[in-house]
Amino acid sequence: PREAYIVTIEKGKPGQTVTWYQLRADHPKPDSLISEHPTAQEAMDAKKRYED
Rank of each mutant, 00 (worst) to 15 (best):
Y21N: 00
T8L: 11
E51G: 05
T8S: 12
T39A: 03
E3R: 14
K47L: 13
Y5S: 04
K13F: 12
V18L: 09
G15C: 05
T39C: 03
T19F: 08
V18D: 09
K47N: 02
L23D: 01
D45L: 14
W20C: 04
V18Q: 12
A25Y: 04
Q41E: 14
K11W: 06
D45M: 12
P38R: 13
G12I: 05
T19S: 06
Y21R: 00
I6P: 00
L23C: 02
K13E: 15
D52P: 05
L23E: 00
S35D: 02
E10T: 14
Y50L: 07
A46I: 01
K29I: 13
P30V: 10
T39G: 03
E10I: 13
E51W: 05
R24L: 08
K48G: 08
R2N: 10
I9Y: 08
H27T: 10
D26Q: 08
D52F: 12
Q22M: 03
Q16N: 13
P14A: 10
E3C: 07
A40F: 15
E3D: 11
P38S: 12
Y21E: 01
D52Y: 13
I34H: 02
T39Q: 03
I34E: 01
P28V: 08
Q41N: 09
A43I: 02
D26F: 07
A4G: 10
K13Q: 13
Q41C: 07
D52A: 14
K11L: 08
P28T: 06
V7C: 05
R2M: 12
V18Y: 09
Q41G: 09
K48Q: 11
R49D: 08
P14K: 12
K48P: 01
T17W: 11
D45A: 11
A46W: 04
T39F: 04
L23K: 01
D31R: 10
R49C: 06
T8M: 14
Q41L: 10
K13N: 14
P28R: 07
H27P: 03
A4R: 02
Q41T: 10
E36I: 07
T17D: 04
L33T: 05
R49L: 13
Y5P: 00
P1Y: 15
A4Y: 13
V7M: 07
P28G: 08
D45G: 06
S35Y: 01
D26C: 09
T8F: 06
V18G: 05
P14S: 07
S35R: 00
A46N: 03
Y50I: 04
Y21M: 01
V18A: 08
Y5E: 02
E10P: 05
K13M: 14
P28Y: 08
E10C: 06
P38G: 09
E3V: 15
G12R: 05
P38D: 05
L23N: 01
Q22C: 03
Y21T: 00
T8V: 12
V7R: 09
E51V: 08
P1M: 14
R49P: 02
Q41K: 13
V18F: 06
R2C: 07
G12L: 04
T8Y: 07
P28M: 08
I34A: 01
R49H: 12
R24P: 01
R2G: 12
P30E: 10
R24I: 10
W20K: 05
K29D: 10
I9W: 04
E42K: 07
Y50M: 05
A46V: 02
T17G: 11
A40N: 10
K11Q: 06
K29V: 14
D26S: 13
G12Q: 06
Q16K: 10
K13R: 11
D45W: 12
V18N: 09
S32K: 11
P30A: 11
K47C: 03
E10S: 10
Q16D: 13
M44H: 12
H27F: 15
A46M: 04
P14W: 08
E42N: 05
K48E: 10
E51P: 04
G12A: 05
P30F: 11
Y50H: 06
D31C: 09
K11V: 11
Y21D: 01
E42M: 07
P1F: 14
T19G: 03
G12F: 04
E3T: 15
I34G: 00
K11M: 08
S32L: 08
R2L: 12
T39H: 04
A25M: 06
K29N: 13
Q16E: 14
T39S: 11
I6D: 00
Q22R: 00
K29T: 13
M44I: 14
L33P: 03
P28A: 07
P28C: 05
A25P: 00
H37V: 02
K48C: 05
Q22V: 04
G12S: 05
A40P: 12
R24E: 01
P38I: 11
S35E: 02
D52W: 13
P1Q: 15
Y21A: 00
T8E: 13
P28S: 07
K29A: 11
V7E: 04
L33M: 07
P30W: 08
T19D: 04
A40E: 15
H27D: 11
S35C: 01
E51F: 06
R49A: 15
G15Q: 06
E3L: 15
P1H: 14
R49Q: 12
K29Y: 14
K48T: 10
H27Y: 15
E36R: 01
R24S: 02
Y5R: 12
T39E: 03
E10A: 08
E51M: 13
A40W: 15
H27W: 15
P14F: 11
T17H: 09
A25C: 08
D31W: 13
E3M: 14
S32N: 08
E42Y: 03
V18T: 14
A40Y: 15
R2I: 14
I6M: 04
H37Q: 01
T19K: 10
Y50R: 03
V18H: 10
V18C: 04
Q16C: 09
K47G: 02
K13C: 07
R49W: 12
W20G: 03
G15M: 05
W20H: 06
A40K: 15
T8I: 13
A43H: 00
E36L: 04
A25W: 04
I6G: 00
Y5Q: 04
A25H: 05
L23W: 00
T19P: 07
V7F: 05
P38A: 15
P28K: 08
E10Q: 13
T17R: 11
P38H: 09
L23M: 03
R24C: 06
I9E: 03
E51R: 05
D45C: 07
E36N: 04
A40R: 15
H27R: 09
A25R: 09
G12E: 04
R2P: 11
I6S: 00
P1N: 15
R49F: 10
K47D: 00
G12H: 06
E36W: 06
V18K: 14
P1A: 14
D52I: 12
I6A: 00
Q16W: 09
I9R: 04
R2F: 11
G12C: 03
I9A: 05
D31E: 10
Y21V: 01
T17Y: 11
E51L: 08
I34Y: 02
G12V: 06
P38T: 12
S35G: 03
Q22F: 02
T39I: 03
L33A: 03
A43V: 06
S32D: 04
D31L: 08
D52S: 15
E3W: 14
K11I: 10
K47W: 06
K29R: 12
I34T: 01
K11T: 07
R24Q: 03
T8D: 04
P30N: 09
E10L: 13
L33Q: 03
E36G: 02
Y21G: 00
